[in-house]
């Protein structure tokens, strides 16, 4: 289980990006974090990844405190961030350097086939399309078999068709080993199609506004009425999260809020 306990982040320049964010995320759960810009969702994700540790509160994965990158936590960024001097296969195997070469080769080959890029093993990253490159990034993050996979707006740079394709593909891959997925997004459709729970955040400073459970069986039909219902629910919550006059959705006013306006 991933336990976030009153996670807060104040940057050295004084910007208060995240305040007292608490949540518990079960192993294998898919959680989408959504919110307007500047609501601290990327800050939160980077704190969980151990890239920019929280300045207060704690992130714990099965009772291990996370303050630096951890082998059980993988991350996929908005850009593929492939290493341009490595072939596609070597990029995927980048995190496996401690394994013997034959084991590594086998796992890379399996991952390549799994993301449908077996024929691109020897290609350079520059020869891939945006969607293909992001698939390689997904394979690279999944191949060390993390327990938690963080995704920071992973499909936002892609066109609508590729995005849908990769969303479905991600669910497919998730079903293999069922890691916990935490997905930062600003796409309501994406949040509802993927997540078990949608955490809506509100800005300045970023904090949790409302938690919405998506009780829909998978695979989800994007055209169904229920799907629309959940989308509307998330959209309404998002709108209200940006309204300064609204109390937290839980009915209490947020502590410390008065400090910010």
């Amino acid at each position: 289980m991933l336990a976030l306990d009153r996670v807060g982040k104040t940057y050295p320049n004084g910007v208060h990006a995240l305040a007292r964010f608490s949540a518990e995320i079960r192993q294998g759960e898919i959680v989408a974090i959504i919110g307007g810009s500047g609501c601290g969702k990327s800050t939160l994700l980077r704190a969980i990844a151990g890239l920019d540790p929280a300045s207060s509160g704690s992130v714990r994965l099965d009772d291990i405190a996370i303050s630096a990158p951890h082998e059980k936590i993988g991350i996929i960024f908005q850009e593929p961030r492939l290493l341009p001097w490595l072939s596609v296969a070597d990029n995927i195997g980048f995190g496996l350097s401690e394994l013997p070469a034959d084991v590594r080769r086998e796992r890379v080959a399996k991952a390549l086939a799994r993301v449908g890029l077996a024929d691109k093993a020897k290609a350079w990253p520059r020869e891939l399309s945006g969607g293909q490159a992001q698939r390689v990034a997904i394979a690279r993050a999944l191949v060390p078999q993390p327990e938690v996979l963080l995704l920071d707006e992973p499909f936002s740079a892609l066109d609508a068709f590729t995005r849908r394709d990769l969303q479905d593909h991600l669910l497919d891959l998730w079903a293999d080993t069922r890691p916990t997925l935490i997905l930062v997004t600003h796409d309501v459709d994406e949040a509802v199609v993927l997540a078990d729970r949608v955490l809506v955040m509100r800005p300045r400073p970023g904090r949790l506004f409302e938690t919405i459970s998506i009780n829909l069986a998978r695979p989800r039909d994007r055209n169904s009425e229920l799907f629309d219902h959940f989308k509307r629910h998330v959209l309404t919550s998002l709108d209200r999260s940006l309204d300064r006059n609204v109390l937290d959705a839980h009915g209490r006013s947020d502590e410390g809020g008065a400090m910010w306006w």
């Binding site: 990844a49 890239l51 630096a68 990158p69 951890h70 082998e71 993988g74 991350i75 960024f77 850009e79 961030r81 290493l83 980048f94 995190g95 350097s97």
Partner: peptide, 21 residues
């Protein structure tokens, strides 16, 4: 920095960061 972060995510040591990235 984004490329260096990839190295950090895979927990490269200082010398490995220099050599591999």
């Amino acid at each position: 920095r984004k490329i260096v972060e990839v190295g950090r995510i895979f927990r490269l040591s200082g010398p490995a960061m220099i050599r591999r990235i």
